[in-house]
Simulated scan of single mutants.
Amino acid sequence: MMQIKTIELFNIELPLIEPFIVSYGTYPNMPSIIVKMTSQCGLVGWGEAVPDEHVTGETLEGTYAVLKHTLAPAMIGENPMNFEKIHAKMDALIYSAPAAKAAIDIACFDLAGKKLGVPAYQLTGGRYYEKFPITHVLSIGTPEKMANEAAERVEMGYNSFKMKVGRDVASDVARIKAVRERVGKEIAIRVDVNQGWVNSSTTMQAVRELEQLNIDWLEQPVRADDIDGMVEIKSKTSIPVMIDEGLRGVREMREIIAKRAADKVNIKLMKCGGMYPAMKLAHMAEMAGIECQIGSMVESSVGSAAGFHVAFSNKVFTSVELTGPLKFSKDIGNLQYNVPYIQLNERAGLGVDVDEAVLAELTRDHCVVQ
């Protein structure tokens, strides 16, 4: 039986090539917590937590403290392959705290895969997809800037975009129209409002302008907790709607299914607590006929790889938006992208090597729990 011997925590900051801008904030760099989990037999599993005050309700400092004082000490001596038991133990210790739990969960999957000599996707359903197209995310900018960036990316081979909007309807519609005019009709455009239009009436003003623009889907236009607002929008538009911030765990998924509040849901490991809970949400969605996406909190190669392993092994996932490693000027891992696609390797666990020299260079705080 494998046992967890030590857990090391690294509070790091990943340098972005350019600031990441969404409706609720601008990120010059991405803070992250890396977990290094070592077993009694000497194997190492890597995990990651990228908390977000606006989405998971966790701060970086709080997540680091929860891992250091609550979750990591309780994992020592546990078998990392007992995913159900590990989650039950974490849930008994602290309510919610999904990003903190995700870091432990991901490290356990990496360890289990390495112990068995199989890729992590073999533990989540086996390989279903061979490759996924990568969507380029356009940060909020002027209509001209966003259109220019989209045109550059089409030249590089990208054929789908996720546009970040959410400032005000008039300027957002101008942004979307500018990109559509520049890239033509064949390129896929998804619009992510990140709650920026607040309510259904504002959203419907935008929807009337967007109906003719062949939008793949409209993501989280209203406040996260306004499930009824999503119901109203879905009933009044032909544009498919996706819930992101409004879906964290099982409780929200039950309500979304019961009210038929979305055509698609954006499952993020940092919102739900890791790979194992993400699988449970995907199974619920599949039973209800709702398509899934694995979304990004701009994680490093470690957290991004974990999301890909879940998506590659379940047919209900029809899109993936894990582009964190492409946004960093320096990353701790070596997840390989073949733009505009990603194909996972066949290596055990997450299939990612962590460069401990780079990790040390980016670390602001470090501790060992044993």
Rank of each mutant, 00 (worst) to 15 (best):
K5R: 15
I7K: 02
F10M: 05
N11S: 12
L14A: 09
S23E: 06
P31F: 06
S32Y: 03
G42D: 11
V44S: 08
G45Q: 04
G47M: 03
E48F: 07
A49Q: 02
V50K: 15
D52S: 06
E58S: 04
G62A: 11
T63E: 02
T70V: 10
L71P: 12
P73Y: 12
M75L: 01
M75Q: 03
N79D: 15
F83V: 08
E84Q: 09
Y95L: 08
S96D: 15
D105M: 00
I106P: 02
K115N: 14
K115V: 10
G117C: 08
Y121Q: 13
Y121F: 15
L123R: 08
G126V: 07
K131M: 10
G141D: 12
A151N: 07
R153L: 13
M156I: 07
N159L: 06
K164L: 09
G166S: 06
V173Q: 13
A174H: 09
A178Y: 09
V191T: 06
Q195M: 08
N199C: 02
T203S: 06
T203A: 05
L213E: 14
W217Y: 13
W217H: 12
R223A: 03
D225S: 11
D225E: 13
K236P: 02
S238V: 11
I239D: 06
M242V: 01
E245I: 11
E245A: 14
G246R: 08
L247T: 03
R251I: 03
E255F: 03
I257G: 05
I257M: 05
A261T: 00
A261V: 02
K268I: 01
K271H: 10
K271S: 05
K271T: 01
G274R: 00
G274V: 00
M275P: 07
A282M: 03
M287I: 07
A288C: 13
G295F: 10
S296N: 14
G303I: 05
A306D: 07
H309G: 02
V310G: 02
A311R: 09
S313A: 14
N314P: 04
F317M: 04
T323C: 09
T323R: 04
T323H: 06
P325N: 01
S329Q: 11
S329K: 15
K330G: 02
D331F: 05
G333V: 00
G333C: 00
Q336N: 11
Q336V: 07
Y337K: 07
P340N: 07
N345Q: 08
G351W: 01
A357S: 11
A360L: 00
E361T: 14
L362V: 13
T363H: 15
